[in-house]
Structure formats: C-alpha cells, structure tokens
Amino acid sequence: MTSTAHATGHYGFAHAARMEWIKLRSLRSTGWALLLTVVGMVTIGVVTMANTEAPGSASARETFDPTNNVMAGIALGQLLVGALGVLLMTGEYASGTIRSTLAAIPDRRLVLTAKAAVFGGLVLVVGEVVAFVTFLAGSAALTDEVAAPSLGDDDVLRAVVLSGAYLAQVGLIGLGLGAVARHTATALGALVGITYVLPLITAGLTGTAVARFFPTMIAGNSVGVAVPVADMLPPWAGFGMLCLYVALALGTGAWLLSRRDA
C-alpha cells in the first residue's frame, strides 16, 4: 500500500483487493476447502465413470451423456466452495476484524467488491482446473465398452468450462449470503436451502416447472450437460440465471452493508 494511501486514509480498489488477497491466503480454511474440492470432485468423477455402462437401447443412447456423469462431484464441490464464500464474510464479523477493515476502507461496497473479485477470481481458476482434470481423469477411467467423450465433441467443451465457472458462481452466492446474514449458521442454512433443500421440495411438488431455476438443477441439467435435458433450461439460459443469483446475493449484501454498523 502506498504512503499516500496511509497519509490520507483513502484506499482504492487495488489497495482493497491486495488486503483481501492477504486475508484470503492467510486463512487455513481456504487451502483445505479448495483441496477437498479438487480431491473430492476428481475422485467422484473417476468412480462414477469407472462404473458407467454403455447404454443398451436406442432411447438410452439418445440421452446418454458421459460428460454429465463425470461432473457428478460438483454436488460436493459447490457445498465446499459456497461454505468458503460464507466464511470469508462472516468470519470477519465473528473475529471482529471487520472493524479494522472498515476503518481502513469506509466504503463498504468497495470492500465487498474487492472480496468478490479476489475470491471469485481464485475459485474460477481452481474451478476450471478441477473441471478439466476431472473430465480427463474420468474419461480415462471409462471401460472399453463405453466411448469416451472428447473436448472436440459437440458442446462438451462448453459443458466443462461452464461447470468450472459454476463453482465460482456458487462461491460468490455464498459470499453474498454471508454479507446479508453476517452469521455463519444462518448464511450456511440459506446456502444449503437454495442449493439442496428447495430444489428437492419443488421438484416433488411441481416437477421441473420451478426446480429447474435452482442452482443445483441448473448445474446438473443445463450448464454441465452436452446432451440437452427435456424440460430444463438451455445451457446459456441456465448460466444467465446463475449470474442473476450472483448479482442478487452480492447486490443485496452490498445494500445491507452500506446501512449497517460494523
């Protein structure tokens, strides 16, 4: 940080981002959560593909999508990354460090923007790496009876890339929920409700009519598929819906932060 910034007490985005990067990498939970995400997704992907069998009927071959199978571990990855996003925000309130953060950077929206940029960028890189590693390792685990998907096949590359981006989006949703709630258990409960509980309840009550708009359903049936799934959102529409979730969570969090005391 520059001496001018210290002298005037004014910090710009670059200073805020640097501060957030230092805090993020100093947290033990960051490394452990990302490591578990990588190991868990790759392991689940390999095990799932090793147990994938070739479709026996013509109708089954039409809907067979090994690319979707290999990304099965995203259900675990989203929980870990989303929880990390929550903790990144609520941990500052629990420890009291939010006071020193806001004393240095009174613009609370700038603080949240810097957190989102740093955390989102890190998780996006990790998400893309784990998505491609999972795809390659899982494809290699297929039996000889099952044709392995290729990144050159129709929509496969798009499915892998958007699956990696999905992790970053869920992480940012978790960050936004943390800013809204400021309490870890409450924010985690909201995250689990949005990603797991509500999709199951609405699917049981209304089928795909409502459930298809929830993040987990979008990940498993829209952005992470190479073969279209009936009655679900198209891939890019699903991606756009996820962007709206991110904007809503972070926007609400920023609005509440600007109106609360530390």
Rank of each mutant, 00 (worst) to 15 (best):
S3N: 14
T8V: 15
T8C: 07
G9S: 02
H10K: 09
H10I: 15
H10T: 09
A14M: 07
A14G: 04
A16K: 02
R18I: 08
M19W: 02
E20Q: 15
L24E: 06
L24N: 05
R25Y: 05
S26F: 08
S29I: 10
A33C: 01
L35S: 14
L36A: 15
V38N: 10
M41L: 01
V42S: 10
I44K: 06
V47W: 03
M49G: 00
N51K: 01
G56C: 00
G56Q: 00
S57H: 03
A58Q: 14
A58V: 15
S59F: 04
S59T: 11
R61N: 02
E62M: 14
P66Y: 01
N68I: 06
A72V: 14
I74W: 13
L80G: 12
V81T: 09
V81H: 06
G85L: 06
L87H: 02
L87S: 12
M89Y: 07
A94I: 07
A94K: 09
R99E: 10
S100C: 04
A104H: 04
A104W: 05
I105H: 03
I105W: 06
P106M: 14
R109P: 10
V111C: 01
K115P: 02
A117Q: 08
F119H: 13
G120F: 05
G120T: 07
G121R: 13
L122I: 14
V123L: 06
L124G: 04
V126P: 00
G127E: 10
F135S: 05
L136A: 12
S139I: 03
S139P: 02
A141R: 09
T143Y: 00
S150T: 13
L151K: 04
G152R: 07
V156H: 04
L157S: 09
G164H: 08
G164P: 07
V170A: 07
I173P: 12
L175V: 01
T184Y: 02
A187W: 09
A187Y: 06
L188I: 15
L188N: 11
A190Y: 11
V192Q: 00
I194D: 12
I194A: 13
Y196C: 09
G207K: 07
V210C: 08
A211H: 08
R212M: 01
A219I: 13
N221R: 09
N221A: 07
S222Y: 01
S222Q: 05
V223K: 13
P228H: 14
V229L: 08
D231G: 03
L233T: 14
P235C: 05
P235H: 08
W236I: 15
G238A: 03
G240N: 10
L244K: 10
L244V: 15
V246S: 10
A247N: 08
L248N: 08
A249L: 08
T252E: 09
G253S: 08
A254I: 11
W255H: 07
W255I: 08
S258V: 07
S258L: 04
R259I: 06
